[in-house]
Deep mutational scan, measured.
Amino acid sequence: MAAGGDHGSPDSYRSPLASRYASPEMCFVFSDRYKFRTWRQLWLWLAEAEQTLGLPITDEQIQEMKSNLENIDFKMAAEEEKRLRHDVMAHVHTFGHCCPKAAGIIHLGATSCYVGDNTDLIILRNALDLLLPKLARVISRLADFAKERASLPTLGFTHFQPAQLTTVGKRCCLWIQDLCMDLQNLKRVRDDLRFRGVKGTTGTQASFLQLFEGDDHKVEQLDKMVTEKAGFKRAFIITGQTYTRKVDIEVLSVLASLGASVHKICTDIRLLANLKEMEEPFEKQQIGSSAMPYKRNPMRSERCCSLARHLMTLVMDPLQTASVQWFERTLDDSANRRICLAEAFLTADTILNTLQNISEGLVVYPKVIERRIRQELPFMATENIIMAMVKAGGSRQDCHEKIRVLSQQAASVVKQEGGDNDLIERIQVDAYFSPIHSQLDHLLDPSSFTGRASQQVQRFLEEEVYPLLKPYESVMKVKAELCL
């Protein structure tokens, strides 16, 4: 049975990233139509530049190519590739079939990587351009969430054990800070992308030097003109047959890092959902379990974690691919890159769409948070109580021993009897502590235990987050809708 299948058929496997999760716009960027249309555009740009620099290419040939950029006979191309065992030459023939007058000058002087690699770089750039505003929107939604809850005390956790208090907004800023680093890295790697350009079979530009009869300047002009037509500021000066596969490492490393950030955020949300302090959106008709109707599973956060793990592992592909590119190139890269580049971007696209949807509907339960604080705060307040007693004339050592005994009794009630923490009640009825009984409410005010959390939130948002989001103001209103 021949390899390949009808990918629109229910009898043929289709990647869930495309069929179930990723956005239509990201799927289109990695589609065959987008790819092969870009090949034709690159052939047109090459012909236009070659004509401008004096090669015998007519206006009629150029116009014929322009008129057929979208006229792609995919069936013919597939048949040609089956016959020739070469995808680029299959599309040269297919393009030439609908451009008979231009057929002889299509791909003039070029090698397969002229269309293959340059198209990949265009796709990487455009895919990054799709991700950047999506990530900015996630940051914006979380920034709104953090600002609104900047002063809401909550129990902090280290080692997932109760620690000092923080605020809900401050905790959210930990998430935002990681995503801001990801946004900066995505922008950097996007701006650092260079075009492969017009380089020939081993990167020496020998074929173009021959076409222009040894004119170095025209060869350099050709490279520059096509690079500018493709919208790049610069091209690699040095290439082998391909652009260095280190570029793929750079791009997928940034995406993998984004995956790590999203995994951490969504894990926190899942843990908070278990504590009943916070939940992701839950639709009115949504079913959490087929057997347990009360369940409210954090399905979206779980999906993000599941896909983020996949995204983090994909960076190993370009690392290994770059390491086995012998001399000017081997074909070890080809099949692998067809999979890992598309999957990385479709996965990143999915987790950003999902995280935006989550961040637009996060639900906080202040009463649950308050109750958990009441359970733990008495123990945390013991040092403040000791200091207040010393100020009232008591002995630190005597007070410490009193607190120690009462704390152990209260802990026994919590752990052995399943009761509430009654340390404060014990202190309130103990005559030894009568000098500070009137101060206990103040000493137990949760806001006095959150330090500068709310001020940190305000400063972080104003100095770091809002300036970073400013270039994306025009796209901030787009909502994230999930079908599944």
Results as ranks from 00 to 15, higher is better:
M225H: 09
V251W: 13
I237R: 11
N274H: 15
A102C: 06
A103L: 13
I427W: 00
D216K: 12
P10S: 14
L461V: 15
T354W: 06
Q61S: 06
V115N: 09
R296H: 06
F208N: 05
G214F: 15
R171Q: 01
T242S: 09
D445P: 04
N68Y: 08
A3I: 15
M225C: 11
E228N: 00
D11L: 06
E401L: 10
P10G: 13
E213R: 14
D11M: 09
V414W: 11
P10R: 14
V364D: 14
L69P: 03
Y432I: 05
L131F: 04
L135Q: 15
G96Y: 02
V363G: 08
T204D: 10
V168W: 03
L135A: 08
A90E: 03
S140D: 06
L307A: 11
R404G: 08
S257C: 11
W45S: 13
G288L: 01
S447G: 13
L461G: 07
M76L: 04
D11K: 13
P435I: 10
T354F: 08
Q458D: 14
Q177V: 14
M316L: 12
A260L: 02
Y432N: 09
E473N: 15
G418N: 00
N68F: 05
L222A: 12
L142V: 09
C173W: 03
P446T: 12
Y34F: 06
C340Y: 15
T202I: 04
D441C: 12
M65G: 15
D215L: 08
H400T: 02
R83L: 10
M380W: 00
L84T: 06
N297E: 00
S474V: 14
G214W: 13
D32M: 11
A103V: 10
F208Y: 05
P281Q: 10
D59P: 07
N68L: 02
G5Q: 09
A206F: 02
S395R: 08
I436C: 04
L311D: 00
V138C: 09
K187R: 14
T111H: 00
F95P: 00
V364K: 02
V475M: 14
I249Q: 10
N421A: 09
V368C: 04
G451R: 02
Q205W: 03
Q286P: 00
C27A: 13
L443H: 05
C483T: 13
E64K: 07
L186P: 08
K477P: 14
N357D: 09
C305Y: 02
F74R: 10
F460T: 12
V478T: 05
L362E: 03
G203A: 02
A3F: 07
D59L: 06
K170A: 03
I403Y: 10
L468Q: 15
L222G: 01
K233P: 08
K35M: 07
I238L: 08
V478K: 10
A388H: 05
L271I: 10
S395A: 11
T347A: 15
G203Y: 00
T158I: 00
C99R: 03
A3M: 05
E383Q: 00
A348H: 01
Q408T: 12
V429G: 13
A22F: 11
A2D: 12
I122K: 04
I139V: 13
L17Q: 10
T382E: 05
D215K: 14
S257D: 13
L209Y: 06
V115P: 15
E277T: 01
H437C: 07
R452E: 09
A256F: 01
T382F: 02
I249Y: 15
M181H: 11
H400D: 01
G214R: 09
L314T: 14
G169W: 02
N118L: 02
I369G: 11
R190T: 15
S359H: 15
L377E: 05
Q164F: 06
A273Y: 01
R396E: 05
T202E: 09
L44I: 09
F327G: 08
A291E: 04
L42D: 00
R188W: 06
R296K: 06
L346C: 02
A206W: 04
K391R: 08
V315W: 08
L258V: 08
V324F: 08
C113H: 03
C304S: 06
C304I: 08
S448F: 05
E283F: 14
H437G: 10
D59H: 05
D317R: 00
K367L: 03
R309C: 08
I369Q: 05
A3V: 07
G203H: 05
E60D: 03
L319M: 11
G451M: 00
R245H: 00
K264W: 02
N353Y: 06
I436Q: 05
L443E: 01
D191P: 05
S9W: 11
T94Y: 15
T204G: 13
T450F: 13
S257L: 14
S207A: 08
D398S: 11
A163E: 07
R303V: 03
Y466P: 12
T201K: 08
D117Y: 03
L362W: 04
P467M: 13
G394Q: 06
R20W: 06
V475Y: 15
Q397W: 00
D129T: 13
V189D: 01
R141S: 12
V189W: 11
T154W: 13
Q184I: 14
S306I: 01
F160Y: 06
I351H: 05
A308T: 07
D73L: 03
R396H: 05
H217T: 12
L17M: 14
R194Y: 10
R234A: 09
E279V: 03
L128M: 13
G197W: 01
S261R: 03
G54D: 05
A308S: 08
E481R: 13
Q455K: 14
F460H: 09
F30Q: 07
G203S: 02
L108R: 01
H97D: 07
S395H: 10
Q325W: 04
V138F: 14
S290G: 01
R33V: 11
P435L: 11
S112D: 00
I351A: 06
P153K: 12
F460L: 13
D144Y: 10
M312Y: 05
A146Q: 00
K66N: 15
R296Y: 03
P446Q: 02
L377T: 02
A480T: 15
W43C: 02
Q241S: 00
S454T: 14
T204H: 06
R296L: 14
S448R: 12
P467N: 15
V138S: 09
F195K: 02
R196Q: 10
M292R: 00
P100Q: 06
A77P: 06
C483L: 12
L331I: 01
R309A: 09
E50K: 07
N297M: 01
V247E: 02
C180P: 03
E283I: 15
L174Q: 13
E81V: 01
G231Y: 10
I72H: 13
S112V: 00
R141A: 13
V368M: 00
H437L: 08
I237C: 14
V189A: 03
P133M: 06
A344H: 07
P100M: 11
L165K: 07
Q285G: 07
I72N: 12
G197C: 14
T330A: 10
L346V: 10
I176M: 12
D422W: 15
V226G: 01
C266V: 13
F74A: 02
D129V: 14
A90T: 05
Q439A: 15
D11A: 07
F433P: 03
T167L: 02
R40Q: 04
L355H: 06
D398R: 11
K284G: 09
S290N: 04
Q221W: 13
S19L: 12
Y365H: 07
R194V: 12
E464N: 12
S395T: 06
E81I: 04
R371T: 08
D178W: 13
L314R: 09
F157G: 04
T313P: 11
L275W: 12
A392W: 15
Y466G: 14
M380Y: 02
C172L: 08
I269E: 01
R452C: 13
I106K: 05
K470D: 11
R194A: 13
P16M: 14
K75R: 00
V405F: 11
R14K: 15
C266I: 09
V138G: 10
R85L: 08
L362T: 07
M312G: 02
K276H: 10
N297G: 03
L311K: 01
A146S: 02
